[in-house]
Amino acid sequence: MNIIACVKQVPDTEAQIKVKADGSGIDEGGIKWVMNPYDEFGVEEALRLKEKFGGEVTIVCLGPARAMETIRTALAMGADKGIHIDDPALYEADSYATAEALAAAIKGLPYDIIFCGQRAIDDDSGQVGSILAELLGIPVVTMVTKLEVEGNSAKATRPIEGAQLVISTSLPCVITATKGLNEPRYASLPGIMKAKKKPVDIKNAAALGVSGASKAKVVKFVPPPARPPGKIICADDTPEGKAAELVKLLREEAKVI
């Protein structure tokens, strides 16, 4: 089975995000970069399928030089090889242009399943997997929490509000992974050593025949609206008194209950 896992390098979830003074982007100083957590679920699932059915896992990643670290992490977890799409023309690519670049890198490779994270936790767009499927002309199941592959098809479970859908899909397909799919493994020390020797192909926009021209642009970054300072409820300093005061305020002042 040939499996592709797309990964992105993003700021760690504990990172404080500061907007640059001119609103042109975020200040990347001091940020710890990690593999997008949702992509990690995709890589882990890819490795489990390889362990079950045999075959190869290829990592595809778009990002600057530092993103190589994320590719190496995936290789250390057990993936076989990588493609690093690195071109300044693509750093600001929107979801469509990103999917175009990924599709160009993937076209021509053999694949049965392509994994993407359901969204990257930096731009939170959640579009790339679906666009990629469309560009490759294959089906997509998004937000998958359980996957069973059987022969030429797969059954994927995805949550919607108040229910879980079990969806059958033909292969090849794109699966976007979400929390619940699995518990990603840590890279072992021998894995980390081996990863250093695994092949990673570096490609630029010209080699892929894409321009990176984006249709959606973030024209301005702004900090979140400040919240007015809150009130600490003391009342008569008993839990009963505080609870009564709180319920009263929620009813009469905030008018939310």
């Binding site: 990172a15 404080q16 995000i17 907007v19 975020i26 731009d123 249709k215 959606a216 642009k217 973030v218 024209v219 301005k220 970054f221 702004v222 900090p223 979140p224």
Partner: peptide, 8 residues
């Protein structure tokens, strides 16, 4: 953690 203004 921050907001973006997007034009298409």
């Amino acid at each position: 953690k921050c907001y973006g203004e997007v034009v298409i």
